[in-house]
Write a protein that binds this DNA or RNA. Sequence first.
DNA 1: TCTGGGGTCCTAGGACCC
DNA 2: TCTGGGGTCCTAGGACCC
Length: 417
Amino acid sequence: MGQRIIFHIDVNSAYLSWEAVYRLQHGNPVDLREIPSVVGGDPTTRHGIVLTKSIPAKKFKIQTGETLYSALSKYPELVIAKPNYLLYRQCSQALGNILKEYSPLIQQFSIDEYFLDFTQMKNLFGDPVKTAYRIKNRIKEELGFTVNIGISTNKLLAKMASEFEKPDKVHTLFPQEIPTKMWPLPIEELFMVGRATTRKLRSRGIQTIGDLAHCDVRLLLPSLKSFGRLVWNYANGIENSPIKPGGRINIKGMGNSTTMSFDVDDRQKAHLVLLSLVETVSARLRQDHSQSCLIAISFRTNEFLSYSHQRKLSHTTDCTNEIWEIACQLFDELWQGQPLRHMGVRVSDLCQDDFVQLSLFEKDYTKLRKLDQAVDSIRSRFGSQSIIRSSYLHSGLHSMTGGVIEEEDYPMMSSIL
DNA sequence: TCTGGGGTCCTAGGACCC
DNA sequence: TCTGGGGTCCTAGGACCC
């Protein structure tokens, strides 16, 4: 097989750009991309971190993941927009629809990133770099936001290329360009090298991606194990995974978690939070026609210590009440009374629900499954708040947490999208 | 740190079996 | 048992990504 040609398409400051375009289309004259601004949560409910920053905000050293409090201390006039996940999904899909016109082989890598395999499309569209410019400009004209496109012979190099100068740029990083364009970069800019790995590499005198590429890989194995081989390969531009079209068909697990607006310190309230998480997780399971046989819960205390506990089941389930019962058992086994700030539920070991075996030894959940189906159907017609359990009425908690987004809360995008 | 929420993969150690 | 080695499964935690 000859050289592949891979594009990586990355939306510049995605959440913020999308919010900026939305506001412009709705008559707001201020372009958030041109002023110091961020998309972030609400500090009064303890969701106060920066999710995305504008390029002018970056000039004030405001960083993704830092608290809004800290960001405001760097620039008090900072404009803060609330996240709007339905909008993001629509923008992401609109982007995918344009990319599909340029290759049938596209992979959505995250809400704001796609890979596109251009190898077979050269004959149809001609020069890859010129085509990338056309794609980039089309997205800007038709959707109103800018992207970076990175071009190379594999996904890793294409992704590294799209990280070069932003915004609204096309970059190449072909293998022969690695020494000049990638090796001078600091080690933490390599994909998959995070904080912990940076620390380990630095302690061995490895400062740049080039240092890593040129070191003896055996130097890395004791502390980094097989991960050392992976990042060494990446530093040398070695990577050959295929574009996986279809995206989320092979989903391995699904979970919901939430930081509560107040510390939870009684068992009953904790169980109620678990139920609200299980409601959305199990609804997603059923919507995907999946069942799970591994249930896990997790929590974080007010001292920021994290714990998790899981159980493998002898059968599979998608039943709200059954998953909730197990989640509560797991919680009770793990919790020692600490005040909790964050809780999560996750299901994995998924399988399709078409050959489900009803266990003779477990409680009979047939009736409960019928109830789940009825509730799902009512919620899909009338919204997720149309049926809630009475236990939530005076609890100060939401009846469904995470995952499901209330479509009716948001107006549709204008005709441009 | 006044520190989100959705994922994936890897590893170490223990249980259990032959 | 003062016991060997290999394989598999399970669990908790940690690393990374966006």
